[in-house]
Design a protein around this nucleic acid. Structure first.
Lengths: 218, 218
DNA sequence: AGCGACGTTATTGTATACAAATAGCTTGCG
DNA sequence: CGCAAGCTATTTGTATACAATAACGTCGCT
């Protein structure tokens, strides 16, 4: 895509993900333009994209703010993601060939490596995990499904979730990935559907209990 | 929203829906700007929105074209819509109150009226049908779900589908709507889920058989 | 002191000019 | 005659200036 608009998108997105622009913070086009060193035009494009992806929300009079997710919002997102990604897994199970399976196994090996180290490499886990899920969605060969899943803001929530994973949760996740691979090897759509559905639900529970812990600690 | 951008959006959208801009036709910003009597800036916004809603597709070098749906694409859209809207119906079943139910019954009365006439009022049916489904999605109280469903391009395909409905298909649709209302009155989420799922699948089959008929006729 | 109208200021919407990139054609070479 | 390289024209990307609109604070009135 375009150079400046992409740069602005990445810049603003990382601003949000890093927490420098906390939920509820106003985002004016001019500030963002100054920050990114480009004019308002590409910034507008970037903000539109971030709006579609629900990183930012628009007030009734067109002002933009960093999105704030309530507990219900997160619940919703994980529910939708679980539904759609389980469907993707089922479709993918019927379509996996040797090449895609190899890629998936490689990716899983990277995940196990990241988790297996003395101090788990969370960033490495996240990257490999994202690729793992992406391979499955791509294998499902359903552009609309892929697009819908992509706009479901997985990233922000997923990151915040796994950032607080303990060793046993990482191991559990890896275990589920292994079972998914087995289901794919067997081309068993129902099996893959069930495992993926449980996989996402477990991630949500890990997130929810983490939030509950923090809430009670405060 | 903004005046000019909204106008451009509506104009280009109707251009696509009417068929004046057939699938595959290139849409240049300048032509659209001339057509709508505004500058390229609001046209860009409008085209971005239409792109998200899959009315237009972007080539690898940023040129935009009217989207063309293959048989698989339509299959995909109906599958996703069925999954999501059945979920919405289940959620809505737990949340329907007297007021929303009344609105739904009123809407259904309008549908029956449109279908019951000597010559079925397809346009009236479509409008009322859209409201019927909208009430359900709104009652589900899930903004993300609503947004996801909205971007699933229901309208173009739905319109083209029902335009060729025969009297018995319209009656069948109305029958399913009545059953949905009964399920909602009983707050039976599973029932609502099943009926809605079947309802969408039936719409898809009607569409698919229509296409098959036309294809064999040609 | 509370409340409302007004003016100021900040922010977004739109238009236009220009730069960059891309596709398509033309021309020259093998 | 086919193909490739380069040029031209078309199209999109970006910057900037200006217009419209909405938020906010101020001043005056009751």
């Amino acid at each position: 895509m375009s150079r400046a608009a992409d740069h602005a998108y990445a810049e603003i997105r990382s601003l949000i993900l890093s927490g420098d622009a906390p939920p509820g913070a106003p985002l004016t086009e001019e500030q963002m333009a100054d920050l990114c060193g480009v004019s308002r035009t590409p910034v507008r494009d970037a903000l539109r994209r971030l709006e579609v992806e629900l990183y930012v929300v628009r007030s009734d009079s067109q002002r933009l703010f960093v999105a704030d997710w309530s507990r219900e919002d997160v619940d919703e997102m994980f529910t939708l993601r679980g539904m759609l990604e389980a469907h993707a897994a089922a479709r993918a199970a019927r379509r996996f060939d040797a090449i895609a399976l190899d890629a998936l196994r490689d990716c899983n090996a990277a995940i196990e490596r990241a988790v297996g180290e003395a101090t788990p490499d969370i960033a490495g886990f996240l990257d490999a995990n994202r690729i793992f899920h992406r391979i499955i969605v791509e294998t499902a060969q359903s552009p609309r499904l892929a697009a819908t899943l992509a706009t479901l803001v997985e990233q922000p929530v997923v990151r915040r979730t796994a950032l607080h994973y303990g060793r046993e949760q990482l191991a559990q996740s890896a275990q589920e990935h292994r079972e998914l691979i087995t289901a794919f090897e067997a081309h068993d759509a129902d099996w893959a559907h069930g495992v993926m559905s449980a996989h996402i639900r477990r991630a949500f529970h890990a997130f929810a209990s983490h939030v509950a812990t923090r809430a009670s600690a405060v």
